[in-house]
Computed example of a mutant assay.
Amino acid sequence: MDNSALLFQLASKGLFVGLLFGVIVWSSRDRNKYRKLVWVTVFLTFDVIMFGAFTRLTDSGLGCPDWPGCYGHSNPIQAMEHIRAAEALMPDGPVTVMKAWIEMIHRYLAMGIGVLIIAILVISWRFWMRSGKTIPQFSPWFPLALFFFVCLQGAFGAWTVTMKLQPIIVTIHLLLGMVLLAMLTWVGARQNTHVPVAIEGKKLRLPAFLSLLVLTMQIALGGWVSTNYAALACPDLPLCHGAVMPQMDFEHGFTLWRSLGMTAAGDYLPFDALIAIHWTHRMFALLVVAVMGWTAWRATRIAGMEKVGRALLGALALQIVIGLSTVSLEWPLALAVAHNGCAALLVLLTVMVNYKAKIAGQTGDLSTADRIDSPTLAASND
């Protein structure tokens, strides 16, 4: 299949996914369809993060070893001859029919996010211009940043495949997915009607930012654990191989630019390096729990932030339980995927805490839900 036909067929599949979720927006009873579109995109991005974790944890990242298609085709059905041949050659290898479908479905869903972000950009620009550039919630600059960011994420998705799951590339791909979720959540928060937050909420700005910072670092460490297959390097709890400080190789473990399972010099990665990766993620989790737990508890004490504070505390507790269970139960697939999903939920809730801390003390502002039907915008739509 020539490249133009391949790209057209893949774009059609991404457009189909986008339109499918667009129907959900259009058929909803929410008067503010733009807000609904943003939050539906948040939902899809959250799902793609979890499905991406499923793709990675089932070793399906190379289920189709080329990009953007599968053996030059837009779906595994057309590439079945090549997939069957690769599977026959290596039955336990990276290419199987199931893994090919998992990888391509992940790509289709990711393209659907791109379609929805383009829709958000176009609609925001249209409303921004028709409102006389008077409604900040419709400013197109943030959606424009989302568009360029999702293109960057797509590039790292391609490099994940073409560079054969190089750990640093896969980890950055995961991080960018989480950042995209955070950006979309911020856009969604701008569209919501918020309960007024007490002026004391301003004091939470620094703790909320620190919580987001340490959470991002922990997700990066978790991605490094996953992409280096170090999840079972420490099989016991609370110690690691019966010691607080087991023998570890930080130099090789945290050399960033190297091939999967190899050192920078091309030798096999020593097991002590995997222990160092896992142990660091586990120890840093203690700091994350302390900082985020303190921030969430303080949020529950501030009027207008109680609900999001309690939700963040609950999600943090759930993540602790899932993290401990994945190790003690030897990393079952369902719990491993849930661990990634709960990390995404923590990102979403921490962004909401940051947003509420930002608007603390503000009163008298109309929400987008109120302004969208204002005379100025309504007249411009006639």
Results as ranks from 00 to 15, higher is better:
363 T>L: 12
275 I>K: 15
137 Q>P: 10
210 L>D: 03
242 G>T: 08
1 M>A: 14
86 A>D: 15
259 S>G: 12
124 S>R: 13
279 W>H: 14
292 M>L: 12
65 P>V: 02
66 D>G: 07
335 L>Y: 04
183 M>H: 05
46 F>N: 05
264 A>M: 08
313 L>W: 00
341 G>I: 10
283 M>Y: 08
328 S>P: 00
354 N>T: 12
236 D>E: 03
309 G>Y: 03
230 A>Q: 11
351 V>C: 11
268 Y>M: 13
177 G>S: 03
276 A>G: 02
179 V>E: 08
120 I>K: 01
184 L>K: 01
193 T>E: 13
87 E>I: 00
142 F>V: 07
297 W>F: 15
268 Y>I: 14
331 W>Q: 09
346 L>Y: 10
63 G>N: 10
297 W>V: 13
141 W>K: 14
185 T>G: 14
155 A>C: 09
271 F>Q: 14
20 L>S: 13
62 L>Y: 05
83 I>D: 07
229 Y>M: 13
328 S>Y: 03
102 I>W: 02
53 A>W: 08
111 M>G: 12
278 H>W: 01
155 A>R: 06
156 F>D: 07
283 M>E: 01
73 H>D: 03
120 I>Y: 00
284 F>A: 13
32 N>S: 15
282 R>Q: 03
337 V>S: 04
357 A>W: 10
357 A>Q: 06
209 F>M: 11
32 N>K: 04
93 G>R: 10
295 T>Y: 01
136 P>Q: 04
257 W>T: 13
6 L>M: 09
378 A>E: 00
26 W>D: 02
147 F>P: 05
7 L>N: 09
234 C>F: 06
127 F>K: 02
292 M>N: 15
147 F>N: 07
168 I>A: 09
225 V>P: 02
347 V>I: 14
38 V>K: 08
252 H>L: 04
87 E>T: 08
60 S>P: 04
235 P>Y: 09
234 C>V: 00
137 Q>A: 15
53 A>D: 09
324 L>T: 11
73 H>M: 12
164 K>C: 00
141 W>A: 12
317 A>E: 04
183 M>S: 13
228 N>I: 07
4 S>D: 08
382 D>W: 02
317 A>V: 12
322 I>S: 06
219 I>Y: 08
224 W>R: 06
148 F>R: 00
42 V>G: 04
372 I>L: 15
260 L>R: 11
215 L>E: 04
133 K>E: 11
272 D>C: 01
370 D>I: 03
200 E>Y: 12
307 K>A: 13
320 I>D: 10
68 P>L: 05
145 A>K: 03
